[in-house]
C-alpha cells in the first residue's frame, strides 16, 4: 500500500469555484512528487488539503495507512514551506528553527543539537542570531526549509518555494532541496508552475490543469510521451509544436507520414528538437524570431500550419523574413485527438 494516497479528492469553494475535481494519486515512501501546472490549476489547493489547511469537500487522504482527511494540520505530522517564507519576524533565526521543536517531548539539549545540525546542513549557521527581515530572500527560504525539516515530519510539503527568488538563488536552492530530500529520505510534495524545476527535481511529475490530473509520470515519460496536448505544450521549453493534420487512407497531411489511424482530422505534436532545417522537407516557414540562447537557439517560424519552433545548435543566425524548409523526425511525431487533445498514437 502506498505511503500517501489521494482518493477522488475534491475541493469546491463556497462561491462555487471547483478548484480540485476528484483526483487520485498514490505516492510511495521517499518519493519526490512535483505538482506542476499553470496558476489556478488546483495544485496549491491540493497541497493545502494534504497539509490540512483546506478542508476537502469530498474524497479521502490516507497517510501511512491512516485516514487523515478530517484531521487538523497539527495532527498530521507534516512540515511545510511557504512561497513567502512565513518566518516569525519577531524571532531570531535560531528561535524560528527551535519553534517546531517546542511542541515535542525533546529535551532542551537535543533540540539545540537538532537545530545546529539542520543549520549546518543548510549553510545558515552564521545567521542563527539574526532576524529574518535582515536577510535576503534566498537565506530566508533556506531557514524556512530548515524549519519544515527540523521536526523530521512524515511528509515535506512545499508551495512554490523558489517562486520569488532570482535565477541564481533558485538554482542554488534547488540543489539544497534535492540533497536534503535524498539525505532524509522524506516523502515530498512540491508545487510549481516552472516545468524546468519540475523536470530537474521530481521523481514523478503530476501535471494538473483545471482541477484534474492530466498525467503523472517520470520527467522523461511526461516529456517524451505526453498523455494529451495540454501536457505536451506545458512541459518543455518551449513546449511541443502542434500541427493540424488530416488523415486520408493511412497517410497524414501535411507531413506525408504513414499513420495507423482512421480518416479524419488529427493534431500532430513534434518537439522543437525533432524539427530539422531541410530545403527539400515537407514544411516551409518564414522566420519570425531567432532566439539565441547560448548553448542552442530557438527559431520561431510562421508556417501555413501555424507557428512552429525549431531548436538548433548555436550556429549561424537567421534573419526575420528568411524562408526555411523543414523536415520532421518521423519516429518522434505524436498524434492527438483534435477535440479533447487526448493522445492517439
Amino acid at each position: 500500500m502506498s505511503f500517501l494516497a489521494l482518493e477522488r479528492l475534491e475541493k469546491r469553494y463556497p462561491d462555487g469555484f471547483h478548484a480540485v475535481r476528484g483526483i487520485d494519486l498514490a505516492v510511495e515512501r521517499g518519493e519526490f512528487i512535483v505538482l506542476l501546472g499553470p496558476s489556478g490549476c488546483g495544485k496549491t489547493t491540493t497541497l493545502r488539503m494534504v497539509a490540512g489547511l483546506e478542508e476537502a469537500t469530498a474524497g479521502t487522504i490516507r497517510l501511512d495507512g491512516g485516514d487523515v482527511t478530517r484531521l487538523r494540520p497539527s495532527q498530521r505530522d507534516v512540515g511545510m514551506v511557504f512561497q513567502f517564507y512565513a518566518l516569525y519576524p519577531h524571532l531570531s533565526v535560531r528561535a524560528n528553527l527551535l519553534f517546531p521543536l517546542e511542541n515535542t517531548g525533546l529535551a532542551k539539549m537535543q533540540r539545540e543539537v537538532r537545530v545546529d545540525d539542520i543549520a549546518a546542513a543548510l549553510g545558515v549557521t552564521h545567521l542563527l542570531e539574526r532576524f529574518p527581515r535582515q536577510l535576503p530572500g534566498g537565506d530566508q527560504q533556506r531557514i524556512s526549509l530548515g524549519r519544515a525539516l527540523v521536526r523530521q515530519p512524515r511528509l515535506w510539503l512545499m508551495d512554490e518555494p523558489l517562486g520569488t527568488l532570482d535565477s541564481d538563488r533558485r538554482e542554488e536552492l534547488r540543489e539544497v532541496i534535492r540533497a536534503q530530500q535524498l539525505q532524509h529520505g522524506v516523502t515530498t510534495l512540491y508545487v510549481t508552475h516552472d516545468q524546468e524545476e519540475a523536470m530537474t527535481l521530481a521523481d514523478r511529475i503530476v501535471v494538473m490543469d483545471q482541477g484534474v490530473i492530466r498525467q503523472a509520470g517520470t520527467p522523461s515519460e511526461v516529456y517524451e510521451s505526453p498523455a494529451d496536448l495540454f501536457t505536451a505544450a506545458f512541459v518543455g521549453s518551449p513546449g511541443m509544436n502542434r500541427i493540424d493534420g488530416l488523415v486520408t487512407g493511412g497517410v497524414c497531411a501535411p507531413l506525408g507520414l504513414p499513420v495507423a489511424l482512421p480518416d479524419g482530422p488529427v493534431v500532430l505534436g513534434v518537439r522543437p528538437e525533432y524539427l530539422h532545417p531541410d530545403d527539400a522537407g515537407p514544411l516551409r516557414g518564414v522566420v519570425v524570431m531567432d532566439e539565441y540562447l547560448g548553448a542552442w537557439r530557438n527559431l520561431h517560424l510562421d508556417c501555413p500550419c501555424g507557428r512552429l519552433v525549431m531548436r538548433l545548435p548555436p550556429g549561424a543566425a537567421h534573419r526575420p523574413g528568411d524562408a526555411v524548409g523543414l523536415r520532421v523526425d518521423p519516429a518522434h511525431v505524436l498524434c492527438f485527438a483534435p477535440g479533447d487533445g487526448r493522445r492517439l498514437a
Partner: peptide
C-alpha cells in the same frame, strides 16, 4: 499578522495558548 504564520504554527503542532503568547501578542 499574515495568515501564513498561523498556518505554519498550526502545522508545527503549536497549542493555541502558545500561538497567542509567541505569535499574536508579540506581533
Amino acid at each position: 499578522i499574515p495568515a501564513q504564520l498561523y498556518e505554519a504554527a498550526e502545522i508545527d503542532r503549536t497549542p493555541a495558548w502558545r500561538v497567542f503568547a509567541r505569535i499574536t501578542l508579540p506581533l
